Amino acid sequence: MSSTVKSPNQKSNGFLWAVIAVVVIAAVVIGYIIISGQSKSKVEFEGQVEPVAMSQQIDDEAFKLTAEDSAKTDDKTPKVEIYEDFLCPHCAELAVADKDQLKDAIEAGDMDVAIRTMSFMDRGNEDGQSHHILAAVYAVGESGDAELYWNYRQYLLEHQQDIYQQWGDEELADLAEQMGAGDDVVSNIRDGKFTDEARQFGKDNEDRLRATDDGVSSPRIFVDGEEIQLSSDWVEKVRR
């Protein structure tokens, strides 16, 4: 009987294939991790979209909110203007404080509200985050979906600290999608379709305040053309 002694340097096909298999598996795993990391959204909307009984439209550089039943309002209904910026901390505080009262007053026809959003917190950077948020909100407002607008605006203000310098068009689109926005609204946000309109929208509202004694700042509230003092119960003081 004879036997063959292999050289220590002689290559083994079995070993080579084993190495190739390990490399391929590692590449697949790494690729999966990378793709999963890229596709995973920062947005995890786990709340409920709150139903509303109001109408919403964009008019005169404002998001106008009125009672769904127009018969509830008349010439004596207070006309309220709210100036805000989505990156303004005090605007976020106000949105939390007056959320329920403001919604109730609008739905009851006790006030018509014009929300005049600005982007001055970007300090002149027209590609800043506040501009991108306003463009996203503008896309939502263009749809005329009052329920989506109300919930979207409220979420962005209430979660301002989590969103600040973290979210871009992708995340803003993801939030709208998770809130039930139509495909066209979601794609308009993701593509930044209303960037130019939003830029002019914010500038026009800033110009309105620039002509006042206190200049551009937020939040500021005007009732029938007269500015009021801010307080957590301002809605109850103003509604009829």
Rank of each mutant, 00 (worst) to 15 (best):
F15Q: 13
G31L: 08
G47Q: 11
S39W: 09
Q56H: 11
A27T: 10
I20G: 03
S55C: 02
G37N: 14
A18N: 11
S41W: 14
G37F: 11
A21T: 11
I20Q: 02
P51I: 08
E44K: 15
G37Y: 00
Q56F: 01
Q57S: 11
V29E: 00
N13F: 07
V19F: 10
Q38A: 09
S39L: 15
F15T: 12
N13Y: 01
S41I: 01
Q38F: 12
K42D: 03
E46I: 13
A27G: 04
G37W: 14
V24R: 04
S55E: 15
E46H: 10
V52F: 05
P51H: 01
Q38T: 06
A27M: 09
V52D: 07
Y32R: 08
A26S: 04
E50Y: 07
A18F: 13
K42Q: 15
P51A: 00
S41D: 08
E46S: 14
L16W: 09
G37H: 08
I58M: 06
I25Y: 01
I20V: 15
Q56N: 12
Y32D: 12
F15V: 12
I34F: 10
E44Q: 15
K42A: 05
V49C: 03
E44L: 13
V24K: 02
S41M: 09
S36I: 15
V28Q: 09
E50C: 02
I34N: 08
Q48H: 10
F45K: 04
A18K: 07
K42H: 03
I58W: 04
K42L: 15
S36C: 09
E50W: 01
S39D: 08
I35P: 04
A26Y: 06
I35L: 13
E50F: 07
V24Y: 08
W17P: 01
V19Y: 10
A53V: 03
V19S: 05
V23Q: 03
N13W: 13
I30Q: 07
V28C: 05
A53W: 02
M54Y: 10
E44M: 10
S41P: 02
N13P: 03
S36Q: 11
K42G: 07
Q57P: 10
A26D: 00
I25E: 01
G47S: 06
V43C: 12
I25W: 01
E44G: 06
